[in-house]
Design a protein around this nucleic acid. Structure first.
Lengths: 141, 141
DNA sequence: CTTGTTGCAAATATTTTGCACCCAT
DNA sequence: ATGGGTGCAAAATATTTGCAACAAG
């Protein structure tokens, strides 16, 4: 599996559920997963974890800076690996796939607008909800 | 109170709970309210409504285009009057006040980015979380 | 009248927490 | 061994729904 250094440095013991969750994000197919997604995938792999543990681990990883929590529509929190870079998201309304993008011009304008209104940006979140224009949505679930 | 034309044209009967909720958004102090906020304010005004009715009314108003539903952080939905214009939000981290803004350049870039990735935008949501730079935050709660 | 609307309670959905047992160090 | 970690069940939070009583047109 993987080295538990990340966990160590975060003051977290290297346990099976934690290693498995980390592995899912590092080597899984989807980069953006909800607690339910993680839980189901672990059960599917024959792991015997509780949903509560998944929630606890995800929250701990978020606080440790290993994961980032996103608030898309739909009431569920979605997590992804914290790669250190900032990016925004475009969510396909047809299949739910999440694509990432970064646009310097948008960031610059945000800075300008905020400054103009007398604010100092600390963080921001931008999601675009869209339909895929290709004949077949390439990201069917 | 108010004319029920909005309701009529939306195919909704003009009832007391609906008129009261609409009034809150049109004449209330805060433009952005959660279901819980609306419910508490109505109870405070001596109205006898159920929380379920508030949720139903808010949802109906959203579908009728009278209100817009926002998904800020915190797990709760927040509603505001639909003034027809599109705008994004800047949330003051110090007092929680919500300021609105609209920037053509940002919108244009979003369109460009989405098109470039093969998507047709249906909706988007942009929130900036920031600190007020004025000596005293002018929006203390 | 007739159909839409409401309040209440119960049901969902998501996430958190209490607790006794288990395991990494 | 021992303190953190886990699973399970129950609680907490946000929202939806079934249903009988009720009210607008």
């Amino acid at each position: 599996m993987h080295q538990p250094e990340h966990l160590k440095s975060a003051g977290l013991k290297s346990t099976l559920p934690r290693l498995k969750v980390l592995d899912l994000f590092e080597n899984g197919k989807e980069r953006h997963l909800s607690a339910e997604d993680v839980y189901k995938q672990l059960l599917g792999s024959g792991e015997d974890v509780g949903l509560a543990t998944v929630y606890r681990v995800l929250t701990q990883f978020e606080q440790a800076g290993l994961l980032v929590r996103r608030h898309f529509e739909g009431g569920k929190s979605v997590f992804e690996l914290n790669k250190g870079d900032h990016h925004d998201h475009i969510v396909c309304l047809q299949c739910g796939h999440v694509e990432e993008f970064h646009d310097k011009a948008i960031e610059a304008r945000q800075e300008k607008v905020a400054t103009g209104l007398g604010f100092a940006i600390r963080d921001h979140s931008l999601q675009i909800y869209a339909d895929c224009t290709k004949k077949k949505c390439p990201h069917k679930r």
